[in-house]
Design a binder for these strands. Structure first.
Lengths: 197, 197, 197, 197
DNA sequence: GATGAATGAGATTTCATTCAT
DNA sequence: CATGAATGAAATCTCATTCAT
């Protein structure tokens, strides 16, 4: 007799999330290529075979991860853009959010983009789509900077460059924190670089 | 004949350099884990077995690479520090150098530090030493920023943070150039973030 | 209620037949080893787990298939033997039947006997029983040939060899038709090889 | 210092042959899908990894095998065609050769064609090429039959059908011998089916 | 020094089979 | 009866490393 189909769907999704979540943690610890399917399975507490019930291949798993995180970042960006108030405040909110690691795994893509873009386990197609989505996300942040420039609060110069530098700062903050090369960043100190003088 | 021995030593060192140089290129293209000993050997034009005549293991090869590049960076930093003139000029020289890729492979460590720090193929000991040397290099740059702050040309704030952000900018400039997510950086536009208002 | 029990038995048998029938089709398409339990289940429209309600194992399923087809062949042979008229006519009826694919899946064993006899998934015991039953069936055909020889219509020589050659012809006809290496066989042209000169 | 290059080439080819030869034996024993790379390696007395030094993949190994055997068959056919004397004698020579198993592995393709054509491990492209080459080989035999028909020694009828039946007989002879379903064939008894009355 | 055959540990992936629901 | 999550053995394939020549 078929069980409760809805609950099954629920459980299935749950498991997917669980696997992805563990995957992020392991990748953050050990890197993309060094993270084996069986590591993930072991940490989740399931057999490696079961992973393939949820993801067709290692690549598909990584792709899901990427998509999830790029979506998450995108979503956060869009939330921030909609906030009321001047651009500088929005940017502050954005950076604070990111540093606070409230959405730990959205940072993922900041840290592993280059691993992904150089990995063998990732097909060229996927890489291209990642590049495009990164570019899109940069554009959203760039728009905030442009807004700030109009308001006079942001240093002039290429807003897309500003975006890239901002994301790099956040990446470094996260990465170096994890790598125990302590330099403490906070949103204020990061945004100072971009404030009009 | 001592002359022969010397020449042999010379040739040996040459080979090492050649292997390391090819390794950098391949790693830049394909990533750390995806770069196989036999890829390197093939591109150098020797048999993979011979690589083990020059390096005891893959890890030792990567360690040499790291050391070479950290040394190279260190050397450049020291050169810049010794330059006459105000700190801002020194920093400009530094950034210009780095962007100009005069020492292309010194940038390597900018791009692959986290691949190294997360790799399976790299022992914990080596990782620790890398962390320390990165930290040392950051300190040298931080000293420049501190000098600039004293001269009034550099934004106040943690000079070590400035260093990290500066290196991140350069890393991004290099990485994204290679990844074709074009944002064009030049030394001026990077240093503006650090100039006192 | 006994009626329900009966009906259940009926339904159960139905299901078995359905599974076996789908199995034949898939094996004909993809080969023995390449046919997965879940392929069969999917094509039947049930879950793979349910297959184990009807067959204890893959081997048992294949064994059922074999038995069914060997039985079917046996039955046809016996029917033909009972026909009135000279042996040559009986043989003609036999070949026509087989070529006409009226009992498509009885041909199965013609095509997959050696896959079965070489398969890993099939136990030695089963293989032995298959060999014996094939041998029995050959004997029945051989008897027809012997009869024909007595009547003077069939080429002399080992009747068992004739049987084997006849079955081989039919097998080739079927196999090569499916494989699109067209040679068109009909009962006449096949039987000519065996007609006394 | 490079070793004797020629000898190395020789040895390499030797090894390939050795592997292929063992592969044929195992496939003949166990079937195509049931023959594992490690079975082959074990029987050759090497590690499974080494097989991949000689063949890129299981499919490539099987493809080599096929090509070798189709070539071998082709070669034998061409030799027979060139023989002096009437067609019937040539055919006799052909069948005797095949039954004598002088070229044991050329028989391979007779036995495993359908396994190959239904296997998952074999790409569609390869299958198509196999079909064509089988067809070519059939045509060569058909030409012999046609010749015999002109000479009046061979039963009339489609010579391509004759070829197929002949090959089927040989296949059965070989297969059933190995499968211990004894029927003893000799060249005479096989050719009788095709002799004009 | 130089080669590349050889090894074997280990990674990905598949699938028959079981079993809780 | 029915489902499909879960298991785990086994197969393919890769690659760092060794070593005879």
């Amino acid at each position: 007799m078929p069980r409760n189909v809805e609950r099954d769907q629920e459980a299935r999704k749950e498991r997917c999330e669980q696997i992805l979540s563990v995957a992020v943690q392991l990748i953050a610890q050990k890197g993309l290529e060094a993270t084996k399917i069986s590591d993930i399975a072991a940490k989740v507490g399931i057999s490696h075979g079961l992973v393939y019930n949820y993801f067709q291949s290692k690549e598909e798993l990584f792709a899901s991860l990427l998509n999830k995180n790029l979506d998450s970042l995108r979503h956060h960006l869009e939330q921030v853009v909609k906030l009321p108030g001047p651009a500088l405040e929005k940017l502050t909110a954005l950076v604070e959010n990111m540093l606070r690691n409230q959405w730990d795994d959205a940072l993922f893509h900041q840290m592993f983009i280059d691993q992904i873009l150089t990995s063998d386990s990732i097909g060229e197609e996927l890489k291209q789509s990642v590049r495009e989505r990164i570019s899109d996300n940069l554009d959203i942040i760039a728009a905030l900077f442009r807004e700030g420039q109009k308001e006079g609060s942001i240093l002039d110069g290429d807003p897309r460059q500003h975006s890239l530098v901002l994301m790099s700062c956040i990446r470094s903050a996260t990465l170096f924190k994890r790598r125990e090369l302590y330099v403490r960043f906070d949103a204020q100190s990061i945004l100072r670089y971009f404030v009009a003088r």
